[in-house]
């Protein structure tokens, strides 16, 4: 599963671990995150994330 990087602060969303701060279960793909998902560090939305190269 593809990891996504926050363009603003560099946080990496890793689907394997999910995002406990936002109650996202491990195994959740980035595409399946809710539309109002926010970066747990800097608070920007999904549109400010890019696939990790």
């Amino acid at each position: 599963m593809m990891k996504y990087v926050c363009n603003v602060c560099g946080y990496v969303y890793d689907p394997e671990y999910g995002d406990p701060d936002n109650n996202i279960e491990p195994g959740t793909r980035f595409d399946d995150l809710p539309d109002d998902y926010e970066c747990p560090i800097c608070g920007v939305g999904k549109e400010d994330f890019s696939p990790e190269e």
Partner: peptide, 9 residues
């Protein structure tokens, strides 16, 4: 008013 990343989280 939170101002995250201006300039720290």
């Amino acid at each position: 008013m939170e101002t995250r990343m201006l300039h720290w989280p």
